[in-house]
């Protein structure tokens, strides 16, 4: 049974992947205007013809899709044409080599930081459920989580960047420039994106922990005279954590989209930036490859979360097996 559900999930995954990439091809075809004169208004006739062939303007949509797919799986993601418009440009893969590590690091920091902060808060609120402290913190977090990340980012940039001058307001520093500089450049984007997740995660962990606290083994442990903190961390935390881990996994995928605005606000020049600029300047080939990458990453994260969910929480597997 378990194998079957994995197989079904995987087949569905492949079908959706196929439909999504084909859908993107269709959408890119719908972009208004003439691609050749948009991308290279000053190029020679020869270069223009090459581009028109590259974009499959002479082929039908299916022929074009499969030739694009062939290029895509062999690692040819197309060219990002220069704004000079004479036909010059950079390979999209080269730009991704710069952009992807930045965005991946940002995603890891955001999820890591959110978990680090929300786990103690969630456990504490569950332990003190219904108290004044619980009410105040829960309501405050609900309220703060409504602030859009980019608005929060601007506020934080003003306080910690402009007024206190602790961190730079703009720009990215790679790790090779020194770990301190790197962390400073990533601190504000990470915190601005993390606030919303901290609220979601700690609320979820609070609910799951309250449920675990009602279990017999907790009563047993406390009647043995074990200390409260020992019980919370050693007996309660692990069985309560599967929900928060799943949601963290799912949100990792959502962050790919969510980081677009924040990367622009802090000028990180990551994947989100690259995508936004490609769309604004109508980089037909780059848009298609980049959106396909996002969709694949999104689907893969969802698939992994789906499969892991059954591994982490045995109840899921037994329900499916039944």
């Amino acid at each position: 049974m378990k194998f079957k559900s994995v197989a079904v999930t995987t087949i569905q995954f492949v079908i959706v992947l196929f439909l999504v990439t084909f859908g993107i091809t269709l959408l890119v075809r719908l972009l208004p205007g003439d691609p050749v004169s948009t991308l290279m208004p000053f190029a020679t006739e020869e270069t223009r013809l090459e581009l028109s062939k590259e974009l499959g303007l002479d082929a039908n949509i299916f022929q074009y899709y499969f030739s694009w797919l062939g290029d895509f799986v062999t690692g040819d993601l197309g060219t990002y044409y220069a704004s000079t418009g004479d036909g010059g440009g950079v390979a999209v893969t080269e730009m991704l080599a710069v952009a992807i590590p930045r965005t991946l690091l940002l995603m890891i920091y955001v999820i890591g930081f959110s978990l680090l902060v929300s786990i103690p808060i969630g456990i504490l609120l569950a332990y003190r459920a219904g108290s004044r402290l619980d009410n105040v913190i829960s309501n405050t977090m609900f309220t703060i989580s409504a602030v859009p990340a980019f608005a929060l980012g601007l506020g934080l940039a003003f306080v910690f960047g402009v007024k206190l001058n602790w961190v730079p307001v703009l720009g990215y520093e790679p790790i090779s420039q020194g770990i301190g500089k790197h962390i400073k450049s990533m601190a504000l984007p990470t915190v601005s994106l993390a606030i919303g997740y901290i609220a979601t995660f700690s609320r979820l962990l609070r609910v799951d922990t309250i449920a675990t606290l009602r279990e017999d083994f907790v009563t047993m442990a406390s009647s043995k005279g074990l200390s409260n903190s020992w019980i919370l961390w050693r007996h309660v935390f692990r069985p309560s954590s599967s929900g928060i881990l799943t949601v963290a996994g799912l949100n990792m995928a959502g962050l790919i989209g969510g980081s677009v605005f924040i990367e622009t606000v802090f000028a990180l020049n990551g994947f989100g930036n690259l995508l936004a600029v490609s769309i604004a300047t109508r980089q037909y080939l780059a848009i298609q490859s980049l959106v396909a990458i996002v969709a694949i990453a999104f689907l893969v994260f969802n698939l992994i979360t789906d499969l892991l969910y059954a591994v982490v929480d045995p109840r899921v597997a037994s329900h499916r097996g039944a």
Binding site: V16, L19, V20, G23, I24, L27, V28, L31, A253, G254, I256, G257, G258, V260, F261, L275, A276, I279, A280, R282, I287, V291, V294, A295, F298, L299, N302
Partner: peptide
């Protein structure tokens, strides 16, 4: 299929 592309990305494509 529409939900498997992050909605911010999709909205950018539609706007274009």
């Amino acid at each position: 299929v529409m939900l498997s592309v992050p909605n911010i990305v999709l909205v950018l494509v539609f706007i274009a």
